[in-house]
């Protein structure tokens, strides 16, 4: 028998895990939050999400066509980016803005830097911040959940905490997500369910999300200036369950490409995100600070990696 063998360097077996599989897991993990968002904010929310996904995928597809590169759409990362952009939009945002934001995320933030694995900022968060700056009005107008056809504008719990007029929701409704806010960020329970799925599938590790949430909570509990008729614990929990903290901690601050790869680096990253979020929410002009916090820490990631090289096995102190 004529035998022709493949000759290559070891190892000769490979784990059956591909990027597309990881991305699919992230998409699955985002489904509870997506479902809750559509439940609270209606068909309009679904339209925003689908627009963001479509715009992201199409942007990546055409970028690859024009640049004569093999299409990278098959790794599903554009779907994840689009889905995250959609979940980070207020339900009432004009759809054309979503298209522009998604194209910005994919083309400017991701593909121009070399595509998946090469961008140094989180594309979905960049899109959100870009849009907040570009269309401040549309991006900060929120509607009440479960309102009838005519969407009623409403302040988010965070803007109330910041001093806007409005009523603070109960901790329970903030936990379930029955508050005004971005489509996918209000329901903490749905996000936690997705996060647990990712932990269980070992797509993410616990370090960044858990440390970020706990450190943030500790900071708010001890240093948050609570001028409301709620206990300090309730105040802290409202801060944790409102706004983008949960979604950011589990799905944005765990993005592989833009976060540290070392254990110590991930701890520093989580602490940094928590601290900057606390500073912005307490002293900044914006009621929300998670996006900026994560983006700032993204910028520090190469440095963090460089200064947290693990001590190698068999390390000996140089004499």
């Amino acid at each position: 028998m004529e035998n022709k063998f493949i000759v290559s360097s070891s190892p000769h077996i490979h784990k059956e895990e591909k990027i597309s599989g990881i991305m699919l897991d992230v998409i699955i993990a985002l489904m509870p939050a997506t479902f809750m968002g559509v439940y609270y904010f209606g068909i309009r929310a679904a339209a925003v999400i689908l627009t963001a996904i479509a715009a992201s995928v199409i942007s990546e597809y055409f970028y690859c066509r024009f640049m004569k590169k093999t299409s990278s759409v098959g790794d599903f990362s554009a779907i994840v980016t689009g889905l995250l952009i959609g979940l980070n939009m207020p339900p009432s945002v004009p759809l054309w803005m979503v298209v522009v934001g998604s194209a910005f995320a994919i083309i400017i933030v991701k593909m121009l830097y070399g595509g998946i694995g090469k961008n140094f900022l989180n594309p979905a968060l960049c899109a959100r911040c870009f849009m907040v700056v570009a269309w401040a009005g549309a991006m900060t107008t929120f509607v009440e959940p479960l309102s009838a056809m005519d969407a009623v504008s409403s302040a988010t719990p965070l803007s109330v905490l910041k001093g806007s007029e409005g009523v603070l929701p109960s901790v329970v409704s903030a936990f379930w997500g029955k508050t005004a806010g971005c489509i996918g960020e209000t329901s903490s329970v749905a996000i936690i369910a997705g996060g647990i799925y990712l932990l269980f599938r070992r797509v993410i590790t616990w370090r960044i999300p858990v440390i970020m949430i706990i450190v943030f909570g500790v900071l708010e509990y001890f240093f948050g200036s609570n001028t409301f008729a709620v206990s300090q614990l309730e105040f802290t929990l409202l801060h944790i369950f409102s706004g983008g903290l949960m979604l950011g901690a589990f799905f944005m601050a765990t993005d592989y490409t833009t976060t540290p790869t070392t254990k110590m680096g991930q701890i520093i990253f989580g602490v940094g995100c928590a601290f900057i979020t606390f500073v912005i929410r307490s002293f900044g002009g914006y009621p929300e600070g998670v996006s900026f916090a994560i983006l700032l820490m993204n910028l520090l990631t190469p440095l963090i990696d460089r200064y947290t090289i693990p001590k190698k096995f068999g390390y000996v102190k140089s004499k």
Binding site: S8, I19, I22, T70, S72, G115, I116, G117, T205, Y256, T257, T259, P260, T261, T262, K263, D305, I309, P310, K311, K312, F313, G314
Partner: peptide, 22 residues
């Protein structure tokens, strides 16, 4: 042996390296 292999910085190699390398 497909073209287009890419590092997405997932850090799994860092986490599992028995010599604690990167």
């Amino acid at each position: 042996f497909e073209n287009g292999s890419v590092c997405i910085r997932c850090g799994k190699c860092v986490e599992k390296c028995p010599m604690k390398l990167m």
